[in-house]
Amino acid sequence: MKLKILIISLFAFMFINGQAQKYITKTGYVYFMSHTDAIDIDGSNNKVAAILDVSNGEMVAIVLIKAFELPLATADKHFNETYMESDDHPKATFIGKLPEVTGLDLTVEGEHEVTAQGTLSIHGKSQEINQKVKLLVKEGKLMGNCDFKVNIDDYGITVPEDVKDRVAKVVDVKIKMTLEPMKNK
């Protein structure tokens, strides 16, 4: 419910003085890699939805777990049913801020390093995070890029004893998204 209220508030006041205040994507990309000596398991999802209000830095990003694509059917089944339990926890979310964005002149092209501060929720468990994000301002768009690590224990993801050597405790995650100024429908 909190997420819904936040999204509605982020959709309000799209323009101030004709200047875009909200930037949006529905096609953000997230990739994960679980590397172990026994096997590498990876998956990607290009349906990440995110909205950023550059007037106050508030941001919401939503990742649908069932929209991840894993190359192998067995890995896909275990990912959804055993580890992420996507029927019970269909989405992962980031709700927070990119505070430095408010101080940037987004009419000027250039690359910046900003911090994402907020709550990352995966598998129904939430953790506060503080993560560096590379932000490129180009052709009126904001291109965000960030790599980080997720410790699966922090999010209550358990791995059965017999396959423990095949799933990494710490999973590498990459996120790329291009946010465009939001238009009135």
Binding site: I24, V48, L64, A67, E69
Partner: peptide, 13 residues
């Protein structure tokens, strides 16, 4: 399609 859930859109894959 297979329903993956809802972001700002309902997503079918």
């Amino acid at each position: 399609g297979q329903c993956s859930g809802y972001t700002f859109d309902v997503v079918l894959v």
